[in-house]
Design a protein around this nucleic acid. Structure first.
Lengths: 188, 188
DNA sequence: AATCATATACGCAACGTTGCGTCTCGCTAA
DNA sequence: TTAGCGAGACGCAACGTTGCGTATATGATT
């Protein structure tokens, strides 16, 4: 049996206020200009209330991320039946998203968090809204015979994400047709 | 004509001491625990001497990087004549380097700098000791007929780097044979 | 059932510490 | 004589911790 709690329960409203404020300030100022004191003030919450529940700034951001509060869009690959077209469409949307200046900063901040926080790093693919779903679709396509049997799915997914990261870090907008070229390269 | 300087010239020994100390502390503690005051103290230099010549911490680290002081190894791809073997060997060495825990932290710190500092980000490939050289080799291989004529070289290089970054961020040691699989995937 | 005791979270506010970036000192070297 | 140098003090911002008084929820006592 779970021993019943004794005193006042954790304030859900405070928790929500903190997470919402964190996500807002993160998107607005980026990770490195994010301060615990700033979040507390803006959220109308005591600093100690934050430190009581979150060990660090990166952990706080991680929770926002895993609750889907950081990325404004759902990057779900479409399902038309043609796996290569779907991948191209999805990758192209991802490129167009990251190429917008404000989003570029957002994703770069996200990369910083991934580099600092192990759990965010490990779930990097999930953080970017992909991974399992994408791998599932690729697996299904392989089974259906749309892809060669030996296609190393994990490598393909990692590689796609990696290409996006490189573009974001290099501040190089994706060239026209880059998504298509990349997909053709990986899944000829 | 270059106007003759008046007054004391910039101290080269101080400059060297600062860069060496920066590289050492960066490798030892990582980027986020690197402080200007710490560098100044360790290098036996006044804080103002640093601020006089470098605008920010990331710029200081960038100069270390571009002078080759940050990465302890030269990651030059071999040249055996077989471009795929060479790529695999090089990529494998890169994986083995980043898989060592202390190096993983180093590269993750480097990613943080690339995310914060535009010039580092833009020269990300050069920072990792690759790019131009690699692209040159790939171009030569294409010309020699070892690779299909339409191979998108830039995409290939970006993709390789991206795959390495993803592994580093995910804290996933590269699986045995990963380098070979990746190269086969990109250059079938 | 009403009351008290205990336990916990809360907002508020202050603490000492660290690192920032700027500034002013003499000293030294070109 | 001028500019870079080491040393170090300054105000500022944010850190992470602590104590205070209040609100709330549970368990024990009347």
């Amino acid at each position: 049996m779970a021993e019943r709690r004794r005193g006042a329960a954790r304030s859900e409203s405070a928790r929500i206020a903190v997470l919402e404020t964190t996500a807002a300030l993160f998107a607005e100022r980026g990770y490195d200009h994010l301060t615990i004191e700033g979040i507390a003030a803006e959220a109308g919450v005591a600093k100690q209330t934050i430190y009581r529940w979150w060990k660090s700034k990166s952990e706080l951001v991680a929770e926002c991320l895993f609750e889907g509060r950081l990325l404004p869009v759902d990057l779900v690959p479409p399902d038309s039946g043609d796996i290569r077209n779907d991948l191209t469409t999805w990758l192209d949307a991802l490129f167009r998203f990251t190429d917008a200046p404000e989003n570029g900063g957002l994703v770069r901040s996200l990369v910083i968090v991934a580099a600092e926080n192990e759990s965010v790093g490990r779930q990097l693919d999930a953080s970017l809204g992909v991974s399992t779903l994408l791998t599932t679709r690729l697996g299904a396509a392989t089974k259906a015979g749309d892809l060669p049997a030996g296609t190393p799915l994990k490598e393909v997914v990692d590689t796609l994400i990696g290409a996006v990261l490189v573009h974001v870090l290099q501040r190089t907008p994706a060239a026209p047709g880059a998504a298509k070229r990349l997909v053709s390269l990986l899944l000829p």
